[in-house]
Design a protein around this nucleic acid. Structure first.
Lengths: 228, 228
DNA sequence: ACTAGTAAGAGTCCGAATGACTCTAAGTAG
DNA sequence: CTACTTAGAGTCATTCGGACTCTTACTAGT
């Protein structure tokens, strides 16, 4: 029983885009979530900021296509990449002539160190995740959705360390949690939680150069791979 | 612009399919998860069982397209529908000539009563979710993934009642949990959990016809809507 | 009509997890 | 040498969930 006969089967454009988060210190020195956006160079929404992305490439997995496009447009190579959602509503605010676009959106995390290396040009810029301008399409909602997933994932999975470098102190790891969750955490309870879950192990080193008791350095224990 | 003619390789077919679960009593009378499958009538995987689905229709939201196709192929109109994942790997086991397909997969729940009304023909049949045959594409893995999501969602969200009719006893609700989670639950603790979360309210009626103390009937309190 | 059996429904006990808090140790800046 | 700061260990109270007991309200069978 072929139902689709009467209907038009015009194939919609398939795009893959990515919400990327990193943590960088703001003016007051506290860590804050930042995300890179690219300026659109063609209609619709020409000139407005949008999530980095592009059309799905042939012979590329969805995830591969996401990271591929990401590298081309922003220079970033995220350590963590996970599919977020597929958006494909027809009533986008692109006007009557807007072509149908189905976007498969990923979300990614990059370390602050890698974020420094990325392109920061006229058409690619970093924004604070909670102070975004009005974005193209429904990208504002998509970023909000991704933020929720990040906060949620932080609590049951252990991904905070991807924001940090190889070795870190528990205070630094706690700063990451505080920045993402948006609230302060008790240092003692945080230590207890981290140590009980066995997600980090001591490197044996301590961090020198502080003006107080030197804290131990930790590294993340090897975790299972990602994507899907 | 019609892309399909010029560069058909760059525009993969976009399909929307759905994993549907319901609960029905098995031979020993216990509730068990069942899912409807349709037999493929064309290559690739002709003759094999697969998830119900079809090409994305123009001018239809993804979710609308999912429930639309579902009604056409199986006669089911699920009470709960949520996007699961977008699958689009290129190395499907379809042979060298397999066309590129990107599937946006939803998962849905239907009540046992509605499931009865659905088509159950030569080419549409119900299977126990844990005893599936070898399915087309990577649909076996997709069902497994959906099962995990269902179990997970049951614990933090309150969706168990969509399997039941309007009024139900706590024992019936507990049976749903037990069937989905695959383990027995303590009746007392289950009652405490349900009553503390305020997801149900008494109807004032009791269920007659039991051969013991008649249990109270409950209904689900109004919850927030779904999809996305 | 009485007894045995069954499940509803209320309640107790205990251990694990978590938030709030205190206290000591180990370093640096002056 | 002193004052200050944070690391890191530890305490206390509350909450939550699993395992369990006990009573109550009904039906089936003699």
């Amino acid at each position: 029983m072929s139902i689709a006969t009467a209907r038009s089967t015009e194939t919609p454009t398939l795009a893959v885009s990515t919400v990327i988060f990193t943590l960088r210190p703001n003016d007051s020195g506290a860590l804050q979530l930042a995300t890179p956006l690219v300026r659109r160079i063609r209609a619709p929404f020409e000139g407005q900021w949008a999530l980095p992305g592009g059309p799905l490439q042939v012979n590329e997995d969805l995830a591969t296509s996401a990271s591929h496009t990401l590298r081309d447009t922003t220079g970033l190579e995220p350590r963590y990449l996970e599919q977020l959602y597929a958006f494909g509503s027809v009533d986008r605010a692109g006007g009557a002539s807007a072509e149908r676009v189905v976007s498969i959106v990923y979300w990614a995390l990059v370390g602050a160190d890698e974020a420094e290396l990325a392109i920061d040009s006229e058409n690619v810029q970093w924004f604070w995740a909670d102070e975004l301008p009005r974005l193209a399409f429904d990208h504002n909602q998509i970023v909000e959705y991704a933020l929720g997933r990040l906060r949620n994932k932080l609590e049951y999975s252990r991904i905070a360390h991807v924001f940090l470098s190889e070795a870190f102190t528990l205070a630094q790891l706690r700063e990451v949690y505080e920045a993402v969750l948006g609230r302060e955490l008790d240092p003692g309870n945080f230590r207890r939680m981290v140590e009980s879950t066995g997600t980090v192990e001591e490197t044996g080193e301590v961090l020198a150069g502080t003006r107080h008791r030197p804290p131990k350095l930790y590294r993340a224990t090897i975790q299972a791979g990602e994507t899907k």
